[in-house]
Design a protein around this nucleic acid. Structure first.
Lengths: 189, 189, 189, 189
DNA sequence: AATGAATGAGGGTTCATTCAT
DNA sequence: GATGAATGAACCCTCATTCAT
């Protein structure tokens, strides 16, 4: 009695789509990885044509991979907003964002360059969530109000991205980012 | 009787090297420019083989071009260090750095990706100069001392790069970067 | 006790072969249709492997499909030969041939290009029938005798094909074809 | 004093462009030839990338090749129109057209399918020239007037194409085409 | 010595066929 | 036995480099 008849014939297809996706995500995590279809296919143990067919083009594959990586991040931002104060959410989330981006390095390049539908949507969701945190923190009196929330959001996002890109990864740098940015955002006066 | 007939032939070579370099620098300044050898050659009014021959490969050309763009920035950092207080130098320099990187957008990609010798050296020089500013500002009591100078340097450098990369360029973002970062670096206590 | 259990299993096979054939014929009738195996399978509501297996290769499938379309044409030629005078048969048949080829546009390309056994045989049958019409009409004194029947047959066949291929289809052109060709075939003297 | 300084550096380029063009034309003349870029390049003794570069894409190459083949045909039609009566021009030209199309077999496929600018223009010129012949011949009282000139032109053009396509080529067929079509076009009454 | 042109390697994509379910 | 998926071959195209002029 649990969705019995519908996904009948795709046990291996789903598995291989998953393999291709995982391979792409794994390569996205490596700093200097070659992101060709062939490289992704090799990593997945599949043929090149298979991964193309599974997604309908390289762009769609990258879109899916980046989205797959980004989606839990956005969800986590939403969860934090619901659970605690906006400022606390901001603090926690920024730390986790850096950790994520550090662990999935090449995602950042994709985020900058391409125009991929799902990724774009998720990024917008991420921006919206951070902006809510900023606005909430302003109302809570936790951060300064002389800079527009949208600007603060962009600043936090882009600098997080940059910090994550540092080679080699550095926890000290991530900590410094959090400390300096949040201190710099304290209410003036 | 010194340098008999040898440098005469090289006059054209020097001129063409300069032309290729200028062309590459100009293209590096444009956001979406095509950085193929042929495009650079066309911009320079030269043949494709000439620009390759003048540098011995595309990588070397890019190294030279990026270095050419970076060199005045490093020199400017040095000059500021000599002219004024370290903190004042830091403030001024960060503003100019953002402006430079915003104006020479594509340089950033090259800075991240490749490992080019001259560029790497210059980047090291840049890091060293900023690190001197940080250390000086610490001695001046102008900034906090609970974060290692090297970490602060990396933080400032990488975030400047990220802010410059913002699309579209935003002066408000650059201002916010300066304000928030420098406020966040104020001495604690 | 004859044919014990064997043909039962083949009921589905026969049905699917029919479905694939109909699908291919339908696509052959459309001018710009995509004639990939997958497209034919989709049109048939079958899997791609099924249509291949049912015929043992794409070429064999096309052979069968084209033959299926051509077969009634040949039979019609035979019937006309039996029913009426040779010249009358010729007149009627040419008109119908053009109409058929116009309605099943893509068949023409296949007729020209490939060398498919069944199709080749049918085409030979078609040629033979037309040739009989020509010879009969000669005996009836209805057409000129200074051109070899085989040549006249080829001329009529190939020009019919060309007229059918006209884009956009034109009834005026078909009429002109009939008028001019038949007038041009009138007995000399 | 004869165009001395302008085409300085292209002796080999022109030669190879010519080679590629000739190769394409040669393959266009063969009935079942493979018209891939690689096949053309092999025929020309060049690399595949070279022929692409020389024309900027496969379509442009085919356009040039077909146009190169078609251009003298159109010019010949124009010349005939200037030299003699329209009907005589028509008779002569149709014979030559068949001969040409027989000798350059595959041109016909390209003429049917693609939308190539130069080829399309030339084809329009060809149609216009033949139409002028028809109209002139009507005024001369040499051909029937109960079929629209445009229809006659299409009929002659498409059937010439079809006759040329006959395999194996047959002079008897070409002669029959001319005889039957022109007799069929005689004035009625 | 400069250069336009040639090229070989590599990219993404499509498709007829084969295989595992 | 039917099938969705896998695949290897083939296609067109781009580009950094090399060569002949």
């Amino acid at each position: 009695m649990s969705t019995p008849a519908e996904p009948k014939r795709r046990a291996d297809a789903v598995r291989n789509r998953r393999l291709a996706l995982d391979a792409a995500m794994a390569l996205l995590a490596e700093p200097g990885a070659t992101l060709t279809v062939e490289a992704i296919a090799r990593q997945a143990g599949l043929g090149a044509a298979t991964v193309v067919r599974a997604f309908g083009g390289k762009d769609a594959l990258l879109d899916a991979a980046v989205s797959g990586l980004l989606e839990p991040v956005v969800r986590r931002a939403r969860d934090l907003l619901a659970e605690t104060t906006a400022y606390q959410a901001l603090q926690t989330f920024l730390g986790e964002l850096i950790a994520f981006q550090t662990a999935h390095h090449a995602v950042n390049d994709q985020l900058d360059g391409l125009e991929l539908p799902a990724t774009t949507a998720l990024r917008a969701g991420l921006v919206a969530a951070v902006e809510e945190m900023i606005e909430g923190a302003r109302r809570e009196g936790a951060i300064r109000t002389d800079i527009a929330p949208a600007v603060v959001t962009t600043l936090l996002g882009r600098t997080a991205l940059a910090v994550a890109r540092a080679q080699p990864p550095s926890q000290a740098l991530a900590d410094a980012y959090l400390t300096v940015l949040l201190d710099g955002l304290r209410p003036t006066g």
